[in-house]
Design a protein around this nucleic acid. Structure first.
Lengths: 140, 140
DNA sequence: TGTAAACTCTGTAGTAACTATAGAGTCAAG
DNA sequence: CTTGACTCTATAGTTACTACAGAGTTTACA
């Protein structure tokens, strides 16, 4: 099949497929006489694998690593575990950050006492540097 | 003060300050004879405002909008409220996504039954497309 | 058979918000 | 007067794509 059909069947865009090839996540396929990429169905599995990994927000370089591990199945699997664990930590800390952010934004939102004009609104005032306090605050 | 001191006092890097200038978030300062940027302390407040906004993960274009609102204080403040509300929604949906992700990753992590080699590990198998025991095994 | 449409090719540029150079110029101290 | 610290502009890199431009290839149909 040519790249267009592969795109439809895999759910990846044509550009993305070519990008993955360039980045070495999938191998370069054969070409027709007219230089068109020609795929067999095996690549569908590889793309599916990549999509599953991307859905877990693994980076392409992490995925590349996993792909290479797949190709040497006798490797100890600790590397896989470590990657997942590391990724879990990253996700956890991102969630924490976002939750703090969410709290801060809600706080901020309360500062508008239904003022009608920007200068009375309180929100912008809140974003300004703290007025006459000690200049060296504990910066986040 | 020159840009180096401003960087130290504001906590923004020199490149970031120049970047903000280029993006129109702060106005271009005067220059010395030798073409060095020369700042007064007012810009410290502006950088602090920007930093506060960035800490809330507002985009530079949102911040630019806020800055322009600051410059016309009689504007109705609804625009500010809307921006914060929109941003709250974005943050909320990102948190949800990440929490789902976190669950998925934990699930995945359980798939390794302390196998010692990659092909027995179960994690990589889990990332492969859902098969019904496809005849082409993982043996290589 | 001709041709128009649909498809594919490579290469480049754009995205967000910076960071990190290169190579040149400016300034202060010794 | 030279050394080092500082600054200048311009450019490239980061991530994972997306969106072209301009060319070539293939297919469908009249």
């Amino acid at each position: 099949m040519k790249i267009g059909e592969l795109a439809k069947r895999s759910g990846c865009s044509i550009q993305t497929i070519r990008y993955y090839e360039k980045e070495g996540l999938i191998s370069a396929p054969e070409r027709t006489e007219g230089n068109f990429r020609l795929y067999n169905s095996v690549v569908l599995e590889k793309l599916s694998f990549i999509k599953n990994c991307r859905a877990l927000d693994l980076t392409l370089s992490e995925i590349k690593h996993l792909v290479s591990l797949q190709n040497s199945p006798e490797t100890p699997c600790e590397a896989v575990n470590e990657m997942i664990d590391t990724h879990l930590l990253v996700v956890e800390s991102r969630i924490e950050d976002l939750q703090k952010l969410h709290g801060d934004l809600k706080q901020l939102r309360l500062k508008c006492g239904n003022a009608r004009s920007v200068d009375q609104c309180g929100i912008l005032g809140e974003l300004l540097p703290k007025p006459e306090r000690s200049p060296s605050g504990t910066r986040k």
